Each structure stands twice: as C-alpha cells, then as structure tokens.
Lab assay of single mutants.
Amino acid sequence: KELVLVLYDYQEKSPREVTVKKGDILTLLNSTNKDAWKVEVDDRQGFIPAAYLKKL
C-alpha cells in the first residue's frame, strides 16, 4: 500500500472529506484525480486536496 505525508492541516468541508493534521502519515487509496486524493484516516475514507499531500 502507498503512504502519503500530510503537509498542512486540513479541515473537512464536506462529508466526503476527512480532517488531517500536518505530519500525519496516511494510507493512499486513490490518486487518479489530480485535485483530490482519497485516503484512509482512522477507519474513515475520504478526500483531501492533493496539494496537501506528498507521496512517500
């Protein structure tokens, strides 16, 4: 599985998104959309803007 590093805090703005903190390391589920990547956070799945993430 692929991991990503969170570069900036992000507060979810819709039910399809998830809230993350800078420095979190998350499982990347889908990065086919260049604008928003799907990740898993504490058994929740949701989207975060790709600009907030860096592949490890």
Rank of each mutant, 00 (worst) to 15 (best):
K1I: 12
K1P: 12
K1T: 11
K1Q: 10
E2I: 14
L3V: 07
L3W: 14
L3K: 11
V4P: 00
V4T: 02
V4A: 07
V4F: 03
V4S: 01
L5T: 04
L5C: 12
L5I: 13
L5V: 10
L5K: 05
L5Y: 09
L5A: 04
V6G: 00
V6E: 01
V6N: 00
V6F: 01
V6I: 03
L7K: 04
L7Q: 03
L7P: 00
L7A: 02
Y8W: 13
Y8L: 09
Y8G: 06
D9K: 03
D9C: 07
D9I: 04
D9T: 05
D9E: 04
D9P: 04
Y10H: 04
Y10W: 06
Y10T: 00
Y10E: 00
Q11A: 12
Q11T: 14
Q11C: 12
Q11V: 14
E12A: 15
E12V: 10
E12W: 12
E12F: 13
E12N: 07
K13D: 06
K13E: 07
K13I: 07
K13P: 06
S14D: 12
S14F: 09
S14G: 12
S14H: 12
S14P: 06
P15H: 10
P15A: 11
R16S: 14
R16I: 13
R16G: 15
R16T: 13
R16L: 14
E17S: 08
E17M: 06
E17T: 06
E17V: 05
E17R: 06
V18G: 02
V18N: 03
V18L: 15
T19H: 05
T19Q: 05
T19A: 05
T19Y: 05
V20D: 01
V20S: 03
V20Y: 10
V20G: 03
K21M: 08
K21I: 06
K21T: 07
K21V: 06
K21W: 09
K22I: 04
K22M: 08
K22G: 05
K22N: 03
K22H: 05
K22W: 04
G23C: 09
G23S: 02
G23D: 04
G23Y: 04
G23M: 03
D24Q: 15
I25T: 04
I25F: 04
I25V: 11
I25D: 00
I25L: 06
I25R: 04
L26I: 13
L26M: 03
L26S: 01
L26R: 03
L26K: 00
L26V: 13
T27F: 11
T27M: 10
T27V: 15
T27K: 13
L28H: 01
L28R: 00
L29S: 02
L29W: 04
N30K: 06
N30E: 15
N30T: 08
N30Q: 09
N30F: 07
N30P: 03
S31Y: 08
S31D: 14
S31Q: 08
T32P: 03
T32V: 10
T32W: 10
T32C: 14
T32M: 12
N33F: 10
N33S: 11
N33C: 13
K34N: 12
K34R: 12
K34D: 12
K34G: 10
K34S: 13
K34V: 12
K34Q: 12
A36Y: 15
A36Q: 14
W37E: 00
W37R: 00
W37M: 02
W37T: 00
K38G: 04
K38H: 12
K38T: 08
V39A: 02
V39N: 00
V39I: 08
V39H: 01
V39S: 00
E40S: 10
E40L: 14
V41F: 10
V41K: 15
V41L: 11
V41A: 09
V41M: 10
D42F: 11
D42M: 11
D42V: 08
D42K: 12
D42A: 13
D43M: 10
D43P: 03
R44N: 05
R44E: 04
R44P: 01
R44Y: 07
R44A: 05
Q45L: 07
Q45G: 05
G46F: 15
F47C: 12
F47L: 07
I48P: 03
I48D: 03
I48G: 02
I48R: 02
P49W: 08
P49N: 05
A50E: 04
A50F: 04
A50K: 08
A51C: 15
A51L: 11
A51E: 13
Y52K: 04
Y52L: 10
Y52Q: 03
Y52G: 05
L53A: 06
K54A: 10
K54D: 05
K54M: 14
K54P: 02
K55W: 07
K55D: 02
K55G: 03
K55I: 13
K55M: 09
K55V: 11
L56C: 13
L56D: 01
L56V: 09
